[in-house]
Simulated scan of single mutants.
Amino acid sequence: MHSAIVGNPHALHSPLVLTQAARHLAAVTLSVFPHTTAAGPAHLAGRDAHPDTLRRAVAYLEAHADQDVTVANIAAAAHVTVRAIQLAFRRHLDTTPLGYLRRIRLHHAHADLRAADPGRGDSVAAIAARWGFAHPGRFAALYRREFGRSPSITLHSWA
């Protein structure tokens, strides 16, 4: 992720990219150095979220896709534990909460690409970075998998 940020001027100015990089650094630090943090109440970990809870979580993600969102934020918005929201997304949507958020952001990037004008200087890299995608190549691969064509084709077919 580091080289994707340093080599991409759009990513250097994207709040979503920078907070994701900081979170990644914190996760790596926690995995490398010993710590004594607890995972949370064990008796609540196996409980799955109710469909209304999942709907609240999805609504929160859709309303906050342009912001720095953590799994803890999603769980709090849905009124359940982190483990319960992770379990609910895995069981009912076959993804993770942050994977679902990435898909929402991908759809927002798609809409921005469709509305963009390359003649005004709009670029795939800038739009990708706006939605938290620091690495243009990875963004293009995700985009192609979701929409069946490259983001540059979408950008240049606006007229």
Rank of each mutant, 00 (worst) to 15 (best):
L61N: 00
Q20A: 12
D117A: 01
I85F: 03
A11M: 07
T70R: 01
H79T: 15
H43C: 04
I85P: 05
A72P: 05
T19F: 09
T96C: 03
A88T: 13
P34F: 03
D66C: 13
R103W: 08
G46Q: 15
F147Y: 15
L61V: 11
Q20K: 02
R23L: 13
M1L: 12
W158Q: 11
R91A: 13
P136L: 09
H110F: 11
A42T: 08
S3E: 08
S123T: 09
V80L: 06
L93R: 06
H2F: 15
H24G: 12
T19V: 05
R149I: 07
A59V: 06
L44M: 09
D48M: 07
N8S: 10
A75S: 10
L101H: 06
G99H: 05
R56V: 08
D52V: 05
H2W: 13
G99E: 02
P136F: 04
E146F: 06
R138Y: 07
A75Y: 09
I74K: 03
T36S: 09
N73S: 08
A72Y: 01
H13D: 04
R103N: 12
P118A: 02
A116Y: 10
R90L: 14
R55Q: 03
V82W: 00
Q86C: 12
A115F: 09
A129Q: 07
E62R: 08
Y143H: 03
I153F: 07
H50I: 01
I127W: 04
R55I: 04
A109V: 03
A76C: 00
A39C: 08
R56I: 07
P9V: 15
A115S: 02
V17L: 00
A59L: 03
A22R: 01
A125E: 10
A27W: 00
L44N: 10
I104W: 07
A26E: 14
H10S: 05
A72F: 04
D52C: 09
H79F: 09
F139V: 14
V80Q: 04
A75M: 07
G121Y: 02
V32S: 09
L93A: 12
L93H: 08
A159E: 00
T96D: 01
G148P: 12
P15S: 15
T81H: 13
A72M: 13
T29G: 02
R145C: 06
